[in-house]
Computed example of a mutant assay.
Amino acid sequence: MEIWISNEQEKVEFTSEHEDLIRRVVERALALAGAHLGTEVSVSVVLVDDEAITDLNRDHRGLASPTDVLSFAQLEGEDMGDLPEGEPLPLGDIVISLERCLAQAADYGHSFERELGFLTAHGVLHLLGWDHQTPEEEAAMMAKTEEILAGLGLQR
């Protein structure tokens, strides 16, 4: 499994412990929700500020406002063609606003690490095809997210 993490912002402190947390959440999420993959995979996580995620949100969703996390799945109905032998299957990219993460942690009364874990798990689930368009999907996705986080000690 390859996990690429890139901190593209300077407004919120991002430590090696935060990077390790993201890696552990991605690994656990894939173990619990992506076991059916049966192949090596890669995931990219990009950390940005509100300005950058607003631009992405506007360009890709038509919403000119900041959001907390965006996921860009590689496997949404497109033929990837043949990957070179031994190359991991790219699941896609997760973009997280660390400014939103920090604000939401304060709003919800829990740690920045809990919120970062939540947003990471949520993003991975989207890469795996999970959605929350209906109340039933929302409940299932929230339950799976909480299961992922509980195994890492990131309960509310």
Rank of each mutant, 00 (worst) to 15 (best):
P66A: 07
K11G: 03
I22V: 15
E137Q: 15
T120Q: 06
M141Q: 14
E138F: 12
A35N: 07
A33I: 02
A106T: 12
V95G: 03
E76S: 13
E146K: 11
E87G: 00
G38Q: 06
R23Y: 01
E146A: 06
S16W: 08
F112G: 11
R23M: 01
P88R: 02
V26Y: 02
E51A: 14
A29W: 01
L91G: 02
G34L: 05
L63N: 10
E147P: 08
T15K: 04
D55P: 00
D131M: 07
A64E: 15
T54A: 01
V48D: 06
E136R: 14
G77H: 02
G38W: 06
L75M: 06
H110M: 00
R100Q: 12
E51T: 10
W130I: 01
G62S: 06
A52E: 12
D55M: 12
Q155V: 13
T54L: 01
L63T: 09
E136V: 11
L102K: 12
E19T: 08
G123R: 02
L128Y: 03
L21C: 03
T39H: 08
E99L: 01
L37M: 06
E78S: 13
H18I: 00
L32R: 13
L21R: 05
F118W: 12
H60V: 10
M80S: 07
T134C: 01
H110V: 00
E85W: 00
E10Y: 10
T120G: 09
P84V: 10
D93F: 00
G77I: 03
R100M: 12
T120R: 09
A31N: 09
H18P: 05
H36N: 11
Q133E: 14
F14G: 07
G151W: 01
R58F: 12
E51D: 13
G109N: 11
V41T: 15
E115I: 01
G81V: 02
T39Y: 00
E51I: 04
S111D: 08
E99R: 04
V26H: 08
V41Y: 12
A106R: 15
A35P: 03
H126C: 08
T145H: 05
L21F: 10
L102F: 10
A105R: 08
I148T: 11
S16T: 12
L75C: 10
T15W: 06
H18Q: 07
L75G: 04
L91N: 04
A140K: 13
G117W: 06
E8A: 13
L127I: 01
L89I: 04
N57C: 12
F72N: 08
T134Q: 02
Q9I: 05
G62M: 05
D82V: 14
N7C: 14
K144V: 08
M142T: 14
P90I: 04
I94G: 02
L125Y: 06
E13W: 01
T134P: 03
S6I: 07
F118V: 00
